[in-house]
C-alpha cells in the first residue's frame, strides 16, 4: 500500500466528521424540542424528560469531544505522508481554542473569536481537500484531482456566501431569523460536499490497499 498512514488518518478524520454531524443533529433536535415542543421540562415536573434531555446533551458533548480527538489523531497520522495535513492540526487547535473562548466571553471579543473559528474551520477543510488532491496527484488519479478543484471552489463560494449573509444580517436584523436558517443550510451543504470528497479520498486510498 502506498499511503497506509494517510489512509488510516483520513479515515479517522472522516469518522470524526460523521460524529460531528451526529452531535450537531442531537443538539439541533434538543433545541427544537426545548423551544417549540416543551420549554418547561425540569427535574421536578418531568424527571424522565429531564434526564433524557440531559443524556442527549451530554451525549452530543461527548461525541463532539471524541470527534475532536479523532480529528487530531487522524491528521497527525496522515501528516507523516502528506505535509499539508500538518496545517490542518494547527487550525483544528485554533478552532478549539476559539470555541472555548466563545463560551466564556461576550461582545466584540466573542464576535472576533467566532470569526476566527469560522475561518479556521474553512481552512481545515481547504487543507484537507488539498491534501487529498496532492495524494491523488501523486497516485495519478485525474478524476479525483478534478473533483478536488471543484469541491474547493464550491466550498469557498459557499463560505463567501455565508460571510456575505452575516454582513447583511448585521444591517438587517429583522431578517436575522430567516437568514440564519439560510446560513445554516449553506454551511451544512458545504460541509456535506467536503465530507463526500473526503469519503471518496478514503475510498481512493483503500483501493490501493486492496490492490485494485
Amino acid at each position: 500500500m502506498k499511503y497506509p498512514k494517510a489512509y488510516s488518518g483520513i479515515k479517522k478524520v472522516f469518522a470524526s466528521e460523521i460524529l460531528n454531524i451526529i452531535s450537531t443533529v442531537i443538539v439541533f433536535l434538543t433545541s427544537v424540542f426545548s423551544v417549540y415542543v416543551r420549554d418547561d421540562v425540569t427535574f421536578e415536573n418531568d424527571p424522565a424528560g429531564f434526564f433524557a434531555l440531559l443524556g442527549l446533551t451530554g451525549g452530543s458533548v461527548l461525541f463532539a469531544l471524541i470527534a475532536f480527538i479523532l480529528q487530531l489523531v487522524g491528521f497527525n497520522q496522515a501528516r507523516k505522508e502528506e505535509r499539508l495535513f500538518k496545517k490542518c492540526i494547527y487550525f483544528v487547535i485554533i478552532c478549539a481554542v476559539c470555541t472555548v473562548a466563545m463560551m466564556f466571553t461576550g461582545g466584540m471579543f466573542n464576535k472576533i473569536c467566532a470569526g476566527i473559528d469560522e475561518v479556521s474551520t474553512l481552512l481545515v477543510n481547504v487543507y484537507l481537500i488539498m491534501g487529498i488532491y496532492t495524494l491523488a496527484e501523486n497516485l495519478e488519479n485525474p478524476s479525483m484531482q478534478k473533483r478536488g478543484k471543484v469541491v474547493l471552489l464550491i466550498v469557498t463560494i459557499l463560505f463567501g456566501s455565508a460571510l456575505a449573509l452575516q454582513i447583511v444580517m448585521a444591517f438587517m436584523p429583522e431578517f436575522a431569523e430567516n437568514l440564519n436558517v439560510v446560513n445554516a443550510i449553506i454551511e451544512f451543504v458545504g460541509y456535506i460536499i467536503c465530507l463526500v470528497y473526503v469519503g471518496m479520498g478514503v475510498r481512493m486510498l483503500s483501493k490501493l490497499k486492496h490492490g485494485r
Binding site: F104, T105, G106, G107, M108, F109, N110
Partner: peptide
C-alpha cells in the same frame, strides 16, 4: 472596556 466586553453585560 475589555472586562465589560468579555463579561457580556
Amino acid at each position: 472596556n475589555f472586562t465589560l466586553d468579555v463579561r457580556g453585560y
